[in-house]
């Protein structure tokens, strides 16, 4: 394989990987703080993309404002999801919570189809659509935005969790909720924060991604699943791990296309992501069993 082609696959993998990473980070933050797998995570991405398009195209809001508004609305939806659905279900088991978030995702998707219709939409790119040629491989400006924003956010999240009071409080909740409670950390406030952050991160992914990929009301399901795999590869431990998981997944998928032989081909690339997930889960089985908190 020529090196320029390899680089092209790498670009493609990083672009997709960044999307998966942002969704995966949302999964990770919520899971770490609350032990809930939020299956509505993909819907935040959809909301981000859809809202930014319709604010811009139908309501004439300038694009940067539309993007910021979309992220805020998604964060509010995240907060509402926690306050109205999750917090009300106090004694719910793992399964019940999973179903609540699945119910929420179906609900949000249905509302989106009703309000915005079922056609794909595409907000304009932030800065032009003409590809740049880098060492023989093409990359679109919007893809650079996407990868760049993902990396910047990763750095910010890392700093936030390790060097701010609030970040440390969240981390404390993730490590031991009851102990965190004893030192005066309000677990509920932390859970709310986690949902707001996850909503905003998903929407950031959606607004930056949709000029590149277009977006439909139903796209959250697939993206959510990939983000979930990314978070699993990262072990649901830290945002940085989830980003690495996402980028790995993106690159593995692109390479599956590149190899294009038998099971390693575009036809089976969705399965490959999940085989990677299974392999990682099983290899880590012993370690994970020790981590799992009693529900």
């Amino acid at each position: 394989m020529a090196s320029d082609q390899l680089l092209q696959y790498l670009f493609s993998g990083l672009t997709h990987g960044s999307i998966y990473a942002l969704v995966g980070v949302g999964f990770t933050i919520i899971y770490a703080v609350t032990s809930i797998i939020n299956f509505a995570q993909g819907e935040f991405v959809m909301l981000g993309g859809m809202l930014s398009f319709f604010l811009f195209a139908s309501m004439g809001v300038p694009l940067p404002m539309a993007v910021i508004l979309a992220i805020i609305v998604a964060a509010v939806v995240g907060a509402l999801l926690y306050l109205l659905a999750i917090r009300s279900a106090r004694q719910a088991s793992v399964v019940s919570l999973i179903i609540i978030t699945i119910g929420a995702s179906i609900f949000i998707r249905g509302i989106a189809a009703e309000v915005w219709g079922v056609d794909a939409v595409r907000p304009p790119a932030f800065t032009g659509t003409t590809s740049w040629l880098v060492a023989g491989a093409y990359i679109q400006p919007q893809a650079v935005w996407l990868i760049g924003i993902t990396l910047v956010l990763t750095l910010l999240l890392h700093l936030f969790f390790n060097f701010t009071m609030m970040g440390k409080a969240l981390k404390a909740c993730a490590i031991n909720r009851s102990a965190a409670g004893m030192v005066g950390i309000d677990a509920r406030a932390m859970a709310l924060t986690a949902f707001v952050m996850a909503g905003a991160l998903g929407a950031i992914g959606g607004t930056v991604m949709s000029p590149l990929t277009s977006i439909t009301y139903g796209m959250g399901a697939m993206i959510g699943l990939k983000g979930f795999v990314a978070a699993s590869i990262g072990g649901f431990k830290s945002p940085v791990a989830a980003v690495i998981g996402g980028l790995t997944l993106g690159i593995v998928e692109a390479m599956a296309v590149a190899i294009g032989w038998g099971p390693f081909s575009s036809a089976y690339k969705d399965a490959i992501a999940l085989i990677v997930l299974l392999a990682i889960l099983l290899l880590r089985a012993g370690q994970l069993a020790a981590q799992e908190r009693p529900s």
């Binding site: 997709h16 991604m209 990929t213 575009s266």
Partner: peptide, 11 residues
């Protein structure tokens, strides 16, 4: 639902 078909197009 794939975000894009970049890799396939590269191929």
């Amino acid at each position: 639902g794939d975000p894009s078909m970049e890799a396939q197009v590269t191929k």
